[in-house]
Nucleic acid binder design. Structure first.
Lengths: 205, 205, 205, 205
DNA sequence: AATGAATGAGACTTCATTCAT
DNA sequence: CATGAATGAAGTCTCATTCAT
């Protein structure tokens, strides 16, 4: 049933355009969110910022929350991709090196998207949990678990894996986020070092 | 740093009846927030939950956000009082003992008011800084600063006081909050120990 | 049934105080009206400006409109009294002199109470006609009628008394009011002269 | 001197349907104003009278006052058009003839729209100056100024142009309006004559 | 009488969503 | 598919008025 190649473009561009429209909507939504906050991000304003009519929004999303979720999901995808690349690139190195590198990239990523991050952290909790963000969290946790197990001999004997995992995840996550959002007068390199020291001090014998 | 006039309470309750009304409003607001989230916490619903007419709300608060601020302020007052008592009681003991005790009480307090804590963290959008909560935070930070200076000889030589203060505050704060809200399968005692270890590991030579 | 004089004061001061309270309310109302306009003159604000509780307003006036009417009535009484004195003082003089003097006083009076006049003219028409103001208007009209009749020989022969009366009243009234409210760059004396010329030009043979 | 942005219409109607909606809103607003006064003319009632939902009002007007302004503006446009036609038709005639004709048309126009005129004068509080009405006023004033200058030799020598202009404008305006609103028992022709006599008596040597 | 707490109708306005063209 | 007009529920807040003390 495949059409002759000369005719298929008819449909492809359409899907392509549709995809670009969706991207445009998400860009606009992120922009409006950053500029006016969750309460100020009305569907009308998003449509206007995206350069389409408000009616068209509903061709692509069933309701407003779906847009918000898509914005966060896309952000999660972006983080996943970039952190994944970093993981692939450094996984073979000793864990302190790899961990430090991952930390570095994560903070950098947060900083790049500080506006959106602020909205997600401060205003969107109201929407409840986000699947993709949770997935990323799980993936990182698993990574740390493997490292903990592989290098168990280097750590304190009394480590409870699950407790330690939870602690590490929370600490690294919260501190990274707060660092980016509160802008304390600590340079990036220093912050990475502090966090690394903190983790090492926590794990070492 | 005092709050803009738009968010301060309106009428200072003189009669007994009205003092009870204000308490009722704050209770109702916390309840509605917990049940329906920030967006669902309309002034109408809060009034209904408090068993008063919506007009009465505005006898005491100039607008909706002022109610939210008052909810948080009342919580901050409670925390301040309880933590203050703890500080007075243990300040003369060695810092690891006093610190651990303070940690213990703080987590216990959070647990007692987990519902309200969740509301504040997840539902109330940032309305500018909350004066009273910030005051408590400052007070605790100052306490830690004094201890850091008094016992400097016991710690790493390369500590930068301000950076360390920020790290400690963020970590202890975030982890305590997340512990109470996420309910990881870690017993209270254990969590206090872990946090204490974490801090000590971070500070020691 | 008259009480011994030594005891009656008990009641008189009370009525006196009551009268002063009413005056205070009217003063406050006029002040608030001038400062915040009709829509901004809420009963609460008037009570506050009068230094009494909102509940007390309703001991003296059955509702808000009654206050407004009383304010206007008191203004009308004031005008009536002052203009009446002027009439008594100059009625025996030749009509152009007496008329000019009356005009002069009227504009002066309007100027003294420009704020209140503005509210009455621009915002209170909504309340419908005011008896006392209408009474004053009637009284002045009657005065002019008498003069027209007494001095008929000096005027155009084709004057229709009622038409002329209406014209004179409207012109003098409207122009005086607009002069005070619009503040055109014409000195007081000049304005009185112009109006007098206008009237004389209209009446003369 | 252009109106603050808060009072300009919102959406420029493109489709035919919406143009009719706007007309309907203005008609309804005028009707409700006439029947219930300014304070009774709530947006809800206007919407109901227009047979649309209250939300639709706000597609076209940013707030209630903008509707009021639009009502007045539409009236001013109508007056401008009709008076303009009259001016074009009689400008070449001697000034007493042209002036009388203009006066005649103005009073006729007011009479045709007495309801609306009453609303504007008695009910619509001053929302800042009405641009279009002021424009018309300026245009008429300019016309009179030109005539005063052109025919200076026929008038009193001591005329101050600006004072005279202000007097004439106020008198003719106020008297016309009051004539239509108060319905004194004076026939139309007679009123035009009286006003013309008044003006001539005021100007002549 | 006076106070101030309480009331509740109703005003203006916004916004997610639907629908006719 | 897109547009933009239309919807109507719901939200925040004010205010004249009443009531308990």
């Amino acid at each position: 049933m495949s059409r002759p190649p000369g005719l298929t473009p008819r449909r492809i561009p359409r899907q392509d355009r549709s995809r670009r429209t969706v991207e445009g909507i998400l860009d606009a939504a992120a922009r409006v969110l950053a500029e006016r906050g969750y309460d100020g991000a009305s569907t009308n304003r998003i449509a206007e910022a995206a350069g389409i009519s408000n009616g068209s929004l509903y061709q692509y999303f069933p309701n407003k929350d779906a847009i918000m979720v898509a914005v966060v999901d896309r952000f999660a995808d972006h983080l996943t991709e970039r952190l994944g690349a970093q993981i692939d690139a450094t996984m073979h190195q000793p864990w302190p090196v790899a961990g430090r590198a991952l930390l570095d990239v994560q903070i950098r990523l947060f900083q790049e998207h500080a506006d959106l991050l602020r909205i997600i952290v401060e205003q969107i909790p109201r929407l409840g949990p986000f699947d993709k963000l949770a997935g990323l969290q799980r993936r990182l946790t698993d990574l740390v678990r493997v490292q903990l197990l592989l290098n168990r001999s280097e750590f304190r004997d009394d480590l409870d894996i699950d407790t330690t995992l939870w602690m590490l995840t929370e600490i690294v996550g919260s501190v990274s986020v707060r660092y980016v959002l509160d802008r304390p007068p600590v340079p990036h390199e220093r912050m990475v070092d502090e966090l690394a020291d903190l983790v090492i001090g926590y794990l070492r014998k």
